[in-house]
Design a binder for these strands. Structure first.
Length: 490
RNA sequence: CGGGCUGUGGCGCAGCCUGGUAGCGCGCUCCGUUCGGGUCGGAGAGGUCCGGAGUUCAAAUCUCCGCAGCCCGACCA
């Protein structure tokens, strides 16, 4: 009887603290529980808004740092443009306004009176930055103009989901102006490459890089490029986009320069953005039934040290702090968990929060000059390592852990991506993954596919070989000169 | 925006059908104990039952209107 009660209490505790559903049971619920229980974010009081908690914001700070470094290395400068944009700006580019009109938040009052011209809260800043660029650019000598801003934007979302789609979200938006198409296109593709590097190197997320089909383009863009990641439920997540805007915005906002022949010429502009949605990507690409799995480059705590009986034996804590100090000196982010909790609780908690490595340090280890090192993934047994070897060992171990995650995610993606040539195969394939197909590229065909399977064209991968043949739906000649990846998406 | 479901201490839930102003588990606080994978015992704190209006002597419970969340769809860098 007592035993039964005890077991039941343990189960209640586990249910309350740990995750209920597994990704296989109920992916949507699993995702929400991770977000909440790993203390990443929660809903704000206004519909669709999100409170980002410190643990997740730290990951975003790291993302910002890696991206910002690459932006600066490629000559970009950060600036800041206003949150509020005159409503009239948005309407200057026809496709742009059509695309964003249904998503706008509008401000009509301030200081207790109606505004003369309503303002919209930026859904993206092409318009206001275009307006400013038109003032700043006079000569070909002013080009290229390479700007970026870190900010939040707002779009009315009908169905918000934390990190994936919220009314307000934080991102970076780059905006550049160039002398001609060639230079602008080089920029567009360069930024796409940077996003890919970021995804692979920092997020351990293999992505498919490529161009969007016309139906999936950014409103007002001539070409849209994307990196698409595969989540563990086989769906695609658009993880970063880069747009070649042609002269569309230059025309709308008069962004022009005098060339060396003293002729007025329209600029060719680009824009590119990546958001906190990447935190959603990280959760859904790497997480498992125990919780979050954070890739080392983004982990707030790469190593968590769990000291045993440290209240009774101060030397344990001293040793733990010394280890932390030594590792920090070689660039490892270490956290010593001094909470008044049992070690078992801490192990579970840090598994839920996805810390890559844990160290268990007690009097016994200390006597032997060793620590037990456990990995969140990819290592079955805890390994006893000499304390003296840690500084040499841990950085490499973190890299190996990153490689493990990347390999695992890549194998998963490849196993769930299939080349198909018939309707039946296609329908089956997009239930759980991606299908690469030849199709005729028409809106009608895309619509038919979407209605039947809810799959949409994700991108025309730049890595794919040229290939042509009959459309798997209509039999008409295929478009784009190569296969296109279709999948369900977020 | 259409269809479905939900809203009760921090979290998970019961109570609602058959109105009589709240209960359980976990968590939290304090004391002791324990500490190498979610210790054990004791004593406590904490809720205008999402909001508003209505019916009633009386509403968590019934009715209406909002708001918010979740799922499916539509929509969506």
């Amino acid at each position: 009887m007592t035993e039964e009660l005890k077991v039941s209490n343990d189960k209640d505790r586990a249910d309350n603290l740990g995750l209920g559903p597994t990704p296989e049971d109920d992916f949507a619920k699993w995702y929400q529980e991770i977000v909440k229980k790993a203390e990443l974010a929660e809903n704000g009081p206004v519909r669709g808004t999100m409170v980002v908690r410190p643990y997740a914001w730290r990951m975003w700070e790291l993302m910002q740092r890696y991206l910002d470094d690459m932006f600066k290395e490629t000559g970009h400068e950060n600036a800041y443009f206003p949150l509020l944009i005159p409503k009239s700006y948005i309407t200057k580019e026809a496709e742009h306004v059509e695309g964003f009109a249904p998503e706008l938040w509008e401000v009509t009052r301030g200081g207790n009176k109606d505004l003369e011209e309503p303002a919209v809260i930026r859904p993206t800043s092409e318009t206001i930055i275009g307006e400013m660029m038109s003032k700043w650019i006079q000569s070909h000598r002013d080009l290229p103009m390479l700007l970026n801003q870190w900010c939040s934007v707002m779009r009315w979302e009908r169905r918000p989901r934390l990190f994936l789609r919220t009314s307000e979200f934080n991102w970076q938006e780059g905006h550049t102006a160039h002398v001609d198409e060639e230079d602008a296109m080089r920029e567009t593709l360069q930024m796409l490459d940077i996003y890919e590097t970021f995804a692979v190197r920092d997020l351990a997320l293999p992505v498919v890089k490529g161009e969007k089909t016309p139906g999936e383009r950014f409103p007002g863009a001539k070409n849209t490029y994307t990196i698409e990641g595969m989540m563990r439920d086989g769906k695609a997540l658009q993880s970063g986009t880069s747009h070649y805007l042609g002269t569309n915005f230059a025309k709308a906002f008069n962004i022009e320069y005098s060339n060396s022949a003293n002729e007025k010429v329209l600029c060719h502009t680009t824009s590119w953005g990546l958001s906190t949605r990447m935190i959603g990507a990280l959760i859904m690409a790497h997480g498992d039934e125990k919780g979050l799995v954070v890739p080392p480059r983004l982990a707030p705590h790469q190593v968590v040290v769990i000291p045993m009986r440290f209240d009774k034996e101060p030397r344990v804590l001293e040793a733990a702090e010394q280890i932390a100090k030594d590792l920090r000196a070689v660039g490892v982010r270490v956290h010593v968990d001094k909470r008044d909790q049992r070690p078992g609780f801490k192990h579970n908690d840090w598994e839920l929060k996805g810390a890559p490595l844990r160290m268990e340090l007690g009097p016994r280890d200390l006597d032997e000059g060793k620590v037990l090192v456990a990995a969140r993934l990819g290592q079955d047994e805890k390994e006893s390592i000499a304390i003296a070897d840690l500084v040499g060992d841990i950085p490499g171990r973190l890299e190996a852990y990153h490689d493990f995650l990347l390999t695992r995610a890549t194998e998963f993606r490849d196993a769930n991506t299939k080349q198909v040539d018939t309707w039946d195969e296609f329908v089956e394939q997009v239930k759980s993954g991606w299908a690469s197909v030849l199709y005729d590229g028409t809106e009608e065909t895309e619509q038919k596919i979407k209605e039947a399977t809810s799959a949409t064209p994700r991108c025309i991968p730049s890595s794919f070989e040229a290939e042509e043949g009959p459309c798997f739906v209509t039999g008409a000649p295929s478009a784009f000169g190569k296969r296109v990846i279709f999948g369900r998406s977020y």
